[in-house]
């Protein structure tokens, strides 16, 4: 049974696109046939995060307007053969597509793919409405900051009003050193405030920046963020996976303790 998942946040810059790229790649690595749709018309970025920016011929608006068939617009990932991208249009705006058209598109893609992931633009306007139209479930990305959490709460309210069947939270860019000092809200704090189910927590990891520089999602690699993303993918599939201990940093005492353990 296939599932349409929208990745959204309200606030910009919290990591929606990176999250979409990593969860999509991870689900494909787990053997699913996955298509990622960039719904941020006018400000596309999922292509560049995936390293597929040079292979775009047709885009989402071309498909919706009937300038090409869906097949022609889908870009197959070079490293991961089950993974496809439907890029966004760069020279149009959000009004080029309607929620009804998005619903029709995702319904068509459901016939061929196990997972359809929609990278939602920031904001609560037309782009957001387009992105959630055909979605069965939502992953709300936030960071442990007041502005991101406030916007996430607003988004959750709008998703509930739109009768989204399942809404899960991802807390991104958490820094355990700051949480320990009491200078950052913990995952538990964020869950307490937003009162929705948590599906994953991703540490602030330099490797993410490196991976994005190279256009290669790091899901499944041996760093904390890579493991955290893979765990989210497994939970999306319905597996019960315990949360990572993000506190296994590189401190001197940690290493010392590890030796004596």
């Amino acid at each position: 049974m296939s599932e349409v998942i929208v990745i959204t946040s309200g606030k910009g810059g919290v990591g929606k696109t990176t999250t979409t790229a990593n969860i999509g790649t991870g689900l494909a690595k787990l053997g699913n046939k996955v298509v990622l749709i960039d719904t941020d018309i006018g400000l596309r970025n999922l292509d560049v995060v995936l390293g597929l920016e040079n292979r775009i011929v047709y885009n989402l608006v071309d498909v919706v307007e009937g300038n090409c068939r869906i097949r022609q617009a889908l870009i197959r990932d070079k490293r991961c053969e089950n993974l496809y991208l439907l890029p966004s249009a760069q020279t149009r705006d959000k009004t080029a597509v309607t929620p009804e058209q998005m619903k029709k598109l995702t319904d068509e893609l459901k016939e061929e793919f196990d997972y359809i992931l929609l990278d939602c633009p920031a904001g609560i306007e037309q782009g957001f409405k387009n992105a959630i139209a055909g979605a069965d479930r939502a992953l709300v990305v936030t960071t442990p900051e007041v502005s991101a959490i406030r916007d996430a709460d607003r988004i959750i309210g709008l998703l509930e009003a739109a009768e989204m069947k399942k809404i899960d939270l991802i807390v991104n860019r958490i820094r355990m050193d700051m949480v320990k000092r009491g200078d950052m809200m913990s995952m538990e704090d964020v869950v307490d405030i937003l009162a929705i189910d948590i599906i994953g927590v991703v540490p602030d990891d330099e490797n993410i920046v490196v991976a994005t520089n190279n256009g290669e999602p790091l899901v499944g690699s041996d760093c904390l963020a890579g493991k955290a993303y893979m765990n989210i993918c497994r939970r999306v599939q319905g597996e019960e996976i315990p949360f990572l201990n993000l506190d296994s940093g590189n401190g001197f005492f940690k290493k010392l303790r590890a030796i004596f353990r």
Binding site: G182, D183, M184
Partner: peptide, 12 residues
Amino acid sequence: KKSGENAKQRLK
């Protein structure tokens, strides 16, 4: 008060 706790109370 620690800033994290302050943020949580303000948000709530």
